[in-house]
């Protein structure tokens, strides 16, 4: 009976998790991932023995023999597995929340942009982002300006000409029109 209940609980957690992940909102995405990891934890819990009132550890042989003659002892391993899984999913959920937050501050939107953008934009079926091409290479400009000016980590770079040292003008000059 209790195992049937557990099976239903695991199933509904997975189903609602999958439903939430398939929605467009990012908060729902996080909640869906969390629900799914709870589903797995419950499944691991059910993979142990669903019994009560029996010890997992025996001090002497005769007590053990007596116990298994009647019934099985409790199994402590799933709890350890669940604990590990909880810690891992906790860490990952924290990371996803930070990532979504960062993305929110960048794009000012909670939605994953996808369905409304033409799918074959610029020949890339998997790029659903609404960021322009220059955004994609932001980090390059960033590196050129910020890092390769300094010869301190690795010596040997030729110095920038003074006209291009100014970061703002360099960024302006880089407004290349993408074909």
């Amino acid at each position: 009976m209790i195992s049937l209940l557990l099976a239903f609980a695991v199933g509904s957690l997975f189903a609602s998790g999958a439903y939430l992940i398939l929605r467009r909102g990012q908060i729902k995405l996080i909640l869906g991932l969390a629900l799914m990891s709870h589903g797995v934890n419950l499944l691991l819990f059910g993979s142990g023995r669903l019994i009560e009132g029996r010890p997992p550890i025996f001090v002497n042989k005769s007590e053990y023999a007596q116990t298994i003659a009647w019934n099985l002892p409790a199994d402590p391993l799933p709890q350890a597995l669940i604990l590990t899984a909880i810690v891992i999913s906790f860490g990952i959920t924290a990371f996803v929340i930070v990532l979504v937050n960062r993305r929110h501050t960048v794009t000012q939107s909670d939605f994953v942009h996808g369905e409304l953008v033409p799918l074959l934009r610029e020949g890339d079926p998997f790029d659903f982002s609404n960021s322009s091409e220059t955004d994609q290479y932001d980090w390059l400009a960033y590196e050129v300006d910020e890092v390769y000016d300094s010869d301190e980590i690795l010596p040997g770079l030729p110095p920038l000409p003074p006209s291009e040292r100014d970061e703002s003008t360099a960024m302006e000059e880089d407004q290349y029109q993408w074909p």
Binding site: L44, L81, L99, R103, T107, D135
Partner: peptide, 28 residues
Amino acid sequence: AQPAQTNSGIRYVVLNLLASTVFLVAAG
């Protein structure tokens, strides 16, 4: 944390997490 990186990061993270979840179910 460039925009393109966070965009792609979310897809990468979610799909890989789902794969890990499936694997953990197999272990269970």
